[in-house]
Deep mutational scan, measured.
Amino acid sequence: AVSDRLIGRKSVVMEAISPQNSGLVKVDGETWRATSGTVLDVGEEVSVKAIEGVKLVVEKLE
């Protein structure tokens, strides 16, 4: 599936994300709604860990 190619990809937070609120990330020039178990600020680099419905699950790059 097209979405499977996103797992493991680097992306950049475009709208802040917290455990309570989804935000936005940009992956390969496309904007996606995303969630995370931690707070992520605009501009942080993250990695796509999973896809749940139409949202990406991301975490901060170490």
Rank of each mutant, 00 (worst) to 15 (best):
V2I: 13
V2P: 15
V2Y: 11
V2L: 14
D4M: 10
D4L: 12
D4N: 13
D4R: 10
R5C: 14
R5Y: 10
R5F: 08
L6R: 04
G8S: 03
G8F: 03
G8Y: 02
G8P: 03
G8E: 04
R9M: 15
R9Y: 08
R9T: 08
K10S: 09
K10H: 12
K10W: 11
K10R: 11
K10M: 11
K10I: 15
K10V: 14
S11W: 04
S11K: 02
S11T: 13
V12Y: 09
V12G: 03
V12P: 03
V12H: 06
V12L: 09
V13I: 04
V13M: 02
M14T: 11
M14F: 09
M14P: 00
M14I: 15
M14D: 04
M14C: 11
E15N: 06
E15V: 13
E15C: 12
A16F: 08
A16T: 09
A16P: 10
I17R: 00
I17N: 01
I17W: 02
S18F: 07
S18A: 06
P19H: 05
Q20D: 11
Q20L: 11
Q20A: 11
Q20K: 10
Q20T: 13
N21K: 15
N21V: 14
N21Y: 13
N21H: 14
S22A: 13
S22H: 09
G23V: 01
G23H: 02
G23Y: 09
G23A: 01
G23F: 03
L24K: 10
L24D: 00
L24C: 10
V25F: 00
K26D: 09
V27I: 15
V27L: 12
V27S: 02
V27N: 02
V27C: 08
V27T: 03
D28K: 03
D28M: 09
D28N: 09
D28L: 09
D28P: 01
G29S: 07
G29Y: 05
G29I: 05
G29Q: 07
G29N: 10
G29E: 08
E30F: 10
E30G: 06
E30D: 08
T31K: 07
W32G: 01
R33A: 14
R33P: 15
R33D: 08
A34P: 01
A34K: 01
T35S: 08
T35W: 06
T35P: 02
T35M: 10
T35F: 05
T35N: 06
T35H: 05
S36V: 01
S36F: 01
S36I: 00
S36E: 02
G37S: 15
G37D: 15
G37I: 12
T38R: 07
T38Y: 11
T38I: 09
V39C: 14
V39N: 13
V39G: 06
L40G: 01
D41P: 08
D41V: 12
D41I: 11
D41Y: 13
V42R: 06
V42P: 06
V42G: 01
G43K: 04
G43A: 03
G43Q: 03
G43N: 05
G43M: 03
G43S: 03
E44Q: 09
E44C: 09
E44P: 00
E44N: 05
E45Q: 10
E45F: 13
V46N: 00
V46L: 00
V46Y: 00
S47E: 13
S47G: 07
S47T: 15
S47V: 15
V48F: 00
V48P: 00
V48T: 02
V48Q: 01
V48L: 01
K49I: 15
K49Q: 08
A50Y: 07
A50N: 06
I51K: 05
I51T: 05
E52N: 10
E52H: 11
E52C: 14
E52S: 10
G53Y: 04
G53F: 03
G53A: 03
V54D: 15
V54A: 14
V54P: 10
V54N: 15
K55N: 14
K55R: 13
K55D: 08
L56F: 02
L56P: 02
L56N: 00
L56V: 07
V57T: 05
V58D: 02
V58W: 01
E59I: 09
E59P: 00
E59G: 08
E59V: 11
K60Y: 06
K60E: 04
K60I: 06
L61E: 08
L61D: 08
L61P: 07
L61Q: 08
L61G: 07
E62I: 12
E62Q: 13
